[in-house]
């Protein structure tokens, strides 16, 4: 279980436009499971990424960016690598 229930991030990059633009701040709730349609933040290769959940399998979640021009690939992420689900955008 993650130590802190909430985390805050600032968005860089354009693959989640129009909902999440570069410079937007997001807050995640980390003590929760995720479902298809949720926007999640996960860590991969030491870097945090923000994507939307397309499908949830056993220990794997398939994610993709909203902006198809920037991110058209669906890709797998381990459930354990997910930091939290975005609950606040400002």
């Amino acid at each position: 279980m993650k130590l802190f229930p909430f985390s805050m991030f600032v968005v860089r990059g354009r693959s989640m436009i129009p909902d999440y633009k570069p410079g937007d701040y997001v807050v995640t709730f980390n003590w929760t499971d995720v479902r298809a349609g949720d926007v999640v933040i996960f860590k991969l290769n030491g870097k945090n990424h923000i994507k939307r959940v397309q499908k949830k399998l056993k220990d794997i979640v398939e994610v993709a960016g909203d902006n198809e021009k920037e991110s058209s690939r669906v890709a797998p992420v381990r459930r354990a690598d997910i930091i939290g689900r975005v609950v606040l955008l400002y």
Partner: peptide, 22 residues
């Protein structure tokens, strides 16, 4: 909202397509 930013250690998160394909 500035208070939230001050309370939290704000990290960067990347909305980019380079993640999983590599």
């Amino acid at each position: 909202m500035k208070l939230l930013s001050d309370l939290f250690n704000v990290q960067e998160v990347w909305a980019h397509c380079d993640i999983p394909c590599g």
